[in-house]
Design a protein around this nucleic acid. Structure first.
Lengths: 178, 178
DNA sequence: CACCCTCCTCTACAGATGTAGAGAAATCTA
DNA sequence: TAGATTTCTCTACATCTGTAGAGGAGGGTG
């Protein structure tokens, strides 16, 4: 579908050049489509942004299946996967920042691993599951961000390697402890 | 100094509208200066970006004085401070994302709480201080980001309140545990 | 005073950008 | 097959953006 081609190109662009690189014509070029195509599908820039963020949301629908016997491992592998899909994750962070002054995006991004995290904290016997769930979520976000664009992006083990997964797993284990 | 006036306006703009809002003329307007001023001080956009990022770095120079008797409390108060200075922190995140495809910024942002975190982990008796330091840093980053733009920005206690500091402190304590 | 130098304001311009609509091409329907 | 409808391509245009330079204001120095 042409629309997906366009939104995928938009994601790529945003990851590589930031929100500023996202223009109708740049998307046309990136997607290898004739000039005007993007503009026909997304008349306004706002629509274009919402379009690519929606696509992001769709693409990340599937994930985070947790094996109760290997919680930390599963989470670590998920984080590692996000690091491997670097561009998608970068685009998502750009979108989150954008959502700050573009509230419509917040709904689309909602993402909401909150209940999942709360349930997890409860299962692990934390006293205040709601709060602990939030802390766990924050920690996982932080691990991801730190490795993606923070200090850890130049120092840590390479994404996609077993070593990285093990390192992440150790960190996640600590975060999951009651 | 006029230059600081300009870079401060730039920070404000980036926080409110994202990197895309950062144009020479918009900075002129924001700063209440005649058109052309920003362009005179920062001829290229790249220079303008580096300028405001440098200003960010200067403004955050003072930070993180740790009282050994109240480590978690000190860190929690620091994080809370960053949340209160919302715009500055938002601009810093925008800059970090920008640094992904603009490596010169990385040097300016370097920020490097790495050694500090490693030393901290060592003092707390972690087995692998380097790794633990990285994890602690990641956790703190995550807590901040989560509260600033993530799910926690709509749910958590309000920044600048004692309740928030206490909540953060509890999270930090957990992160500091060996 | 005349001179110079720095700081600032204004104007210019080529190119990019958002947005719109006219019409061609492809696809569907009967 | 003929007509209707959707999908796409092209072109247009007002506005914004990056960048440059000409020249004025003002202040200090001799």
């Amino acid at each position: 579908m042409r629309k997906d081609l366009i939104t995928d190109a938009a994601i790529q662009l945003v990851a590589e050049q930031g929100m500023r690189g996202l223009t109708h014509r740049a998307v046309d070029r990136q997607a290898g489509l004739p000039e005007g195509s993007t503009s026909a599908y997304f008349r306004t820039r706002k629509a274009l942004i919402e379009g690519f963020v929606e696509r992001l949301a769709v693409q990340e629908q599937q994930e985070i299946v947790l094996d109760p016997d290997d919680l930390a491992g599963g989470i670590a592998r998920t984080i590692d996967g996000w690091l491997v899909e670097r561009n998608r994750t970068l685009a998502r962070y750009a979108a989150m920042l954008e959502a700050t002054h573009h509230p419509e995006l917040r709904t689309i991004l909602a993402h909401s691993p909150r209940e999942q995290a709360t349930a997890l904290a409860q299962a692990l016997g934390h006293e205040d599951p709601e709060r602990s769930g939030a802390h766990i979520t924050a920690f996982i976000e932080g691990l991801l961000f730190y490795r993606l664009v923070g200090g850890g992006s130049t120092t840590g083990p390479a994404p996609g390697t077993e070593e990285n997964v093990r390192d992440l797993e150790r960190a996640v284990e600590k975060a999951l402890r009651p």
